[in-house]
Design a protein around this nucleic acid. Structure first.
Length: 593
DNA sequence: CTTTCCGCACCTGTAGGTCA
DNA sequence: TGACCTACAGGTGCGGAAAG
């Protein structure tokens, strides 16, 4: 069974930083009684303990049980005495560790229906006629324009987790539900992609009315369809309390093709229910949907105009197969929403290290982690000194911040491709002092050539250049393509790179790492005197969004704010490389003890 | 001599962690 | 949102030993 987990943030029982005033904590404990008893068994499956349930803040990680079951593998039949096996999953929203163990306990909890990717082929016959997504026996109340409680996004949200949906409907203004800068940017990228897609449909009519003007939108959609528009953008329908706005509804022979525009660069399983709810509602409103498609970004497109920006994937068959489940799920969600907040366990499993089965086989890193937690102290392997040996001589420390746009902005770039737009570089001089060099792109022009030139110049004298995880290495390799005139120098720089991440992972564990070896997690335990507390930007993803804003919408930002953000970015990136400097110093001390 | 089994090395697909 | 890397599981193919 899988050893590919780490002990995660187990034991960190209350690491949530969000406030949950009326939050789900009350549902996090296993009810007393036989359900909470635990015993091992060779067959059957149940759990130890119970993890905090779905937070109303959008847990983009999977809700139980999909993730738990997806990650479980069958136990080997060849093993005569099967050892208890454990799968551990992490609740991304709250960073709580979960383990499921094959046991024989049954929980009362209801198992929500989940869309099972790949499980749809055999059900295609459930649809009335091949390729016809409209359902003649639709029982939905057609064309209702009263307050719709569900929507496409709410439906897909509910498919993931009923409790998540409940909070989104009943407390939409909750702090945790407000999109942060990074999510806001993601939405914005999606909107830009949606708008770009419209260029493909000449003569298309946009339902250009406010989102809340439901009745007017529905009426305008009808009008456009009746007028014979070749395509309608944001075509709006309401049925059975569910509101949908279809990205593109395209006239095709005797019916319509429904197209959902996605900013992703591939078709995903989760797109199917997304399209299905739209098809269902439109069909219930009397629109004959004969085909469904997802229009996503094309990985092979290159800025400015090589290939097609979009790729079309026909999803008629999988959507048709999923369709029969939609009305039932809509009904379940509406019923659930009418009641109190549902008791949905996010996952079941072990929530503390103490509960970990002792026979569980662990790899070296896990064993070290367990030992460190048991003894509540830092553990340093004797091999650390040896592993630090390459980190000598004239050492450089390099960190990038990048931009990644859905619709590529610089020559030769693909959708979502990351490109370095900023770097920070510290270099240890023979006298023991450190020099610093930095670069931050300015203006919409391709930043890679000047960045590469500045970086090549700054790193020329270094013998080795330290990075944390091979992210920088990959970007430098890409720069060789983007800036061919410096390819040789960039290749030389690439050859100097050494990674500090495996050194920490293989040699050091501190209980305060909380299961992670990312720089942000290990820094405070190892170098407590260095913090990010005085900085405005403390997260690479935020930095990335801010750089993009600075470069591409600069004219909308007041001059003084622009200067301030630039300084925030420079401070953040410099702190990251300085953190690596201090980290190496600290590791040396630990190795010398 | 052939067949069968086992351990081992190697390959491939997948999941999780990490970066932005 | 993507991509990379790593670890692991599971499959395959090989050689050698044991069994027939």
């Amino acid at each position: 069974m899988s050893d590919s987990w780490n002990l995660g943030h187990a034991g960190a029982t209350n690491v949530s930083t969000t406030t949950m005033p009326s939050g789900p904590r009350s549902t996090t404990t296993l009810p007393p009684g036989p359900e909470s008893s635990v015993r091992f068994s060779a067959s059957g499956c149940a759990c130890i303990g119970m993890a905090p349930s779905c937070a109303r803040n959008a847990a983009r990680g999977s809700c139980w049980p999909a993730a738990a079951y997806a990650s479980r593998r069958g136990s080997s039949p060849s093993t005569s005495t099967p050892a208890p096996t454990a799968d551990i999953i992490r609740n991304h929203s709250r960073r709580v560790l979960l383990v499921t163990v094959p046991l024989t306990v049954h929980l009362r909890s209801r198992v929500p229906v989940q869309y099972v990717p790949g499980g749809v082929e055999g059900k295609a016959r459930a649809v009335d006629s091949p390729g016809l997504l409209s359902h003649p026996s639709a029982t939905l109340r057609s064309m209702s324009t009263q307050a719709a409680r569900l929507s496409k996004s709410r439906f897909t949200s509910g498919l993931q987790c009923h409790k998540k949906l409940w909070w989104e409907v009943h407390e939409p203004d909750a702090l945790e539900l407000q999109p942060d800068k990074v999510l806001q940017d993601l939405f914005d990228q999606g909107r830009q992609v949606g708008e770009a897609a419209r260029a493909r449909y000449p003569g298309g009519v946009l339902i250009d009315l406010p989102h809340h003007a439901r009745a007017e939108r529905v009426a305008a959609t009808h009008e456009a369809l009746d007028a014979g528009a070749p395509a309608v953008f944001e075509a709006t329908f309401i049925a059975d309390d569910t509101f949908v706005a279809i990205d593109v509804l395209e006239k095709q022979n005797d019916g319509y093709r429904l197209t959902e525009v996605k900013s992703s660069s591939s078709l995903k399983d989760e797109h199917i229910p997304d399209v299905a709810i739209q098809a269902r509602v439109a069909a219930a409103c009397g629109v004959k949907i004969t085909a469904a498609a997802v229009l996503h970004l094309n990985k092979d497109f290159r800025n400015p105009d090589t290939g097609d920006l979009f790729a079309r994937a026909d999803v008629t068959a999988p959507v048709a197969a999923f369709l029969p489940q939609v009305p039932e799920e809509v009904a379940r969600q509406r019923e659930m929403l009418a009641g109190p907040v549902p008791d949905v366990p996010l996952a079941r499993g072990i929530t503390s290290i103490a509960e970990l089965p002792t026979r569980e086989k662990l790899n070296f890193t896990q064993q070290r982690q367990l030992k460190a937690m048991a003894e509540n102290r830092i553990i340093v392997e004797p091999t650390l000194a040896r592993q630090l040996e390459p980190f000598t001589g004239r050492l450089g420390f390099l960190d990038f911040e990048t931009i990644a746009r859905a619709i590529p902005v610089w020559p030769g770039m693909a959708p979502w491709q990351q490109a370095a737009a900023q770097f920070s570089y510290h270099e240890r001089q023979p006298d023991g002092n450190y020099t610093h060099a930095a670069f931050l792109a300015e203006g919409p022009r391709d930043a890679r050539p000047p960045l590469a030139a500045a970086m090549v110049r700054a790193t020329a004298n270094a013998e080795r250049v330290v990075m944390y995880t091979p992210f920088e290495k990959t970007r430098i390799r890409e720069l060789q393509q983007a800036v061919p005139e410096l390819a040789t120098e960039l290749a030389a720089l690439e050859a100097k790179l050494i990674d500090l991440h495996p050194v920490v992972k293989n040699c050091v564990y501190h209980p305060a790492f909380r299961g992670s070896f990312s720089l942000k997690y290990i820094l405070t335990p190892l170098v407590p005197e260095l913090t990010y507390d005085d900085l405005v930007i403390v997260d690479g993803r935020v930095a990335s969004v801010e750089i993009a804003r600075l470069l591409f919408v600069a004219e909308k930002i007041p001059r003084n704010e622009r200067d301030r953000v630039r300084q925030d970015l420079l401070n953040y990136c410099e702190r990251d490389t300085w953190a690596m400097v201090k980290l190496v110093e600290r590791l040396r001390e630990l190795a010398a003890r």
